[in-house]
Amino acid sequence: MSTSPTAPSVPVRLLICDDHAVVRAGLLALLGSAPDIEVVGEAGSGAEAVALAARLVPDVVLMDLQLGPGIDGVEATRRITAPRDGAPYVLVLTTYDTDADITRAIEAGATGYLLKAERPEELFAAIHSAAQGRTALSPPVAGRVMARMRSPRPVLTARELDILGQLAHGLGNRDIARALFISEATVKTHLGRIYDKLGVDTRAGAVAVAKEQRLLP
């Protein structure tokens, strides 16, 4: 009995976003050898990625997090994955693996989170997984996610994280208020909540615990 020929697989349409031209060129060369992956465009900024994703309608956007001036990879991910018909999946490819970076990316809608140290075959597999809506995580990232689930860290709001970041840079209340365009009274209120959540009573203590628990990027 004869068998029908296997239907050719449809390649995954991929958009690359990285602000370094050399990195993009390397990815283009690498992915050009990948089976069933078609690079349909490349972007050097978050805004360009958002625009190209809307125009080219890729299956997956390969997204770096740090993109220089303008919106970062997290905000670009949020805009690209906003609920609508045909919205692509976003697979983060970055060198940053802090809890804060991972959490922000996943909350923004990223389907997967890969580190640039991964082997090419792992990247290819992750792209195909992302195209099917399946989660793809580098082993170190998966380990962090599991550890966080087993031992939940304090949950800080986005504003509290902003203020914590300013504390880590040594800014006082007045400078923090100016940097974030809020009042000093508001800064003090947020600081009190931060201290309560982290179980500390000093600025230095808050920064130390935040670094220990990797709450800062």
Rank of each mutant, 00 (worst) to 15 (best):
F181H: 15
R153A: 07
A210P: 04
V145W: 06
E122K: 10
T135E: 06
V207Y: 02
A147N: 14
G172C: 07
A142W: 00
Q213V: 08
I176C: 06
R148Y: 09
G192D: 14
Q132F: 07
R203G: 01
K197G: 01
A177D: 08
E118N: 11
A210H: 02
G165Q: 08
A125H: 10
Y195W: 13
L156C: 09
A179Y: 00
P139E: 13
A204E: 15
L164A: 04
K197A: 05
I176N: 03
A131P: 00
R214W: 09
P140Y: 14
V200D: 03
A206T: 00
E212W: 06
R193N: 13
G199I: 04
R203F: 05
V141L: 11
H128R: 13
T186V: 05
R153H: 02
A147S: 13
P140Q: 11
F181S: 14
V187K: 01
S138V: 11
R203M: 13
L167I: 05
S138P: 12
E122A: 15
F124T: 05
R144P: 01
V200C: 09
I182N: 06
L180K: 05
H128Y: 00
R178I: 08
T157M: 10
R134N: 11
L167Q: 03
S151F: 04
A136V: 08
H128S: 08
G133N: 08
D201G: 12
A208T: 11
I194P: 05
G205Y: 04
R174I: 12
L164H: 01
K197I: 00
A131H: 04
H169I: 02
S183P: 03
L156H: 11
G170W: 06
R214L: 00
A130P: 01
L198N: 04
E212M: 09
R193C: 03
I127T: 03
V155C: 00
P154T: 07
L171N: 12
P120C: 02
D162P: 08
R159M: 10
R159W: 01
H169M: 11
E160D: 02
I194E: 04
K197F: 03
G192H: 10
L161M: 12
T135V: 15
E212C: 13
D196K: 14
L191Q: 06
G143A: 12
A147M: 13
V200N: 07
R178C: 01
G199Y: 10
A125N: 07
A206Q: 02
A177P: 08
R203T: 14
T157Q: 12
I127D: 00
P139M: 07
L198H: 02
V209R: 10
I194L: 06
G165W: 08
E118P: 00
A142C: 06
D162L: 08
H190N: 15
G205Q: 04
V145F: 07
F124H: 11
